[in-house]
Computed example of a mutant assay.
Amino acid sequence: MKFAQAMLAVAAATAMQFSASPDAFATGKMKCDAGPQSGWKSRTDLEAKLKKDGWTIKKSKVDGGCYEVYGVTPEGQNVEAYFHPVTMEKLLVSQRGKVIFKK
């Protein structure tokens, strides 16, 4: 009986982990205190702005309350970059773990 209870506890903890908010899985590279998502500009708007500025976007997502973008800069660098979701301000750009820009 104790084994069954232990297994149930493990299953419950695992279920809670996978139902956590997306920010619970943030990488920790950058954290934005941007308020509720209802006040954020859209990722589509950010991607359009970056494309206009010469970026090639491979993927974007929310990480740590920021927009995280994987792409190629106008200079041809493959990067991971973080932007504030309200102001769309560039906060951090790194390439292969090396920071190349930090606000």
Rank of each mutant, 00 (worst) to 15 (best):
K2W: 05
K2D: 10
K2V: 06
A4T: 15
A4M: 15
Q5H: 11
A6F: 12
A11Q: 07
A13E: 13
A13R: 02
A13L: 10
A13I: 09
T14V: 15
T14K: 08
T14R: 10
T14A: 15
M16K: 07
Q17A: 08
F18Y: 14
S19I: 09
S19Q: 14
S19K: 14
A20I: 01
A20V: 01
S21A: 15
D23N: 14
A24D: 11
A24C: 03
F25G: 07
F25E: 12
A26K: 04
T27A: 04
G28Y: 03
G28Q: 02
G28L: 01
K29A: 14
K29M: 06
K31P: 00
C32S: 09
A34G: 11
A34K: 09
G35L: 09
P36D: 13
Q37K: 07
S38W: 01
S38Q: 13
S38N: 11
G39Q: 12
W40F: 03
S42F: 00
S42A: 05
T44M: 10
D45N: 06
D45I: 05
D45E: 14
L46N: 07
L46D: 07
E47I: 01
A48E: 12
K49L: 12
K49F: 07
K51T: 15
K51N: 12
K52H: 11
D53L: 11
D53T: 12
D53Q: 14
G54V: 09
W55R: 02
W55D: 02
W55P: 00
I57G: 02
I57F: 04
I57D: 02
K58A: 12
K58W: 10
K58G: 08
S60E: 07
S60M: 03
V62R: 03
V62D: 05
D63A: 09
G65P: 06
G65V: 10
C66K: 05
C66A: 08
C66E: 04
Y67W: 11
Y67S: 08
E68V: 06
V69A: 02
P74R: 04
P74H: 05
P74W: 06
G76A: 10
Q77I: 01
Q77D: 15
Q77F: 00
N78E: 15
N78K: 15
N78R: 14
V79Y: 03
V79A: 04
E80G: 01
E80V: 09
Y82M: 10
P85H: 08
T87A: 03
T87C: 01
M88G: 00
E89T: 13
K90N: 13
L91F: 00
L91T: 06
L92F: 05
L92Q: 03
V93Q: 12
S94M: 14
S94D: 13
G97E: 08
G97F: 03
K98S: 11
K98W: 04
V99H: 02
V99G: 07
V99N: 03
I100Y: 02
I100S: 04
F101I: 06
K102R: 14
K103W: 07
K103G: 12
K103N: 15
K103E: 14
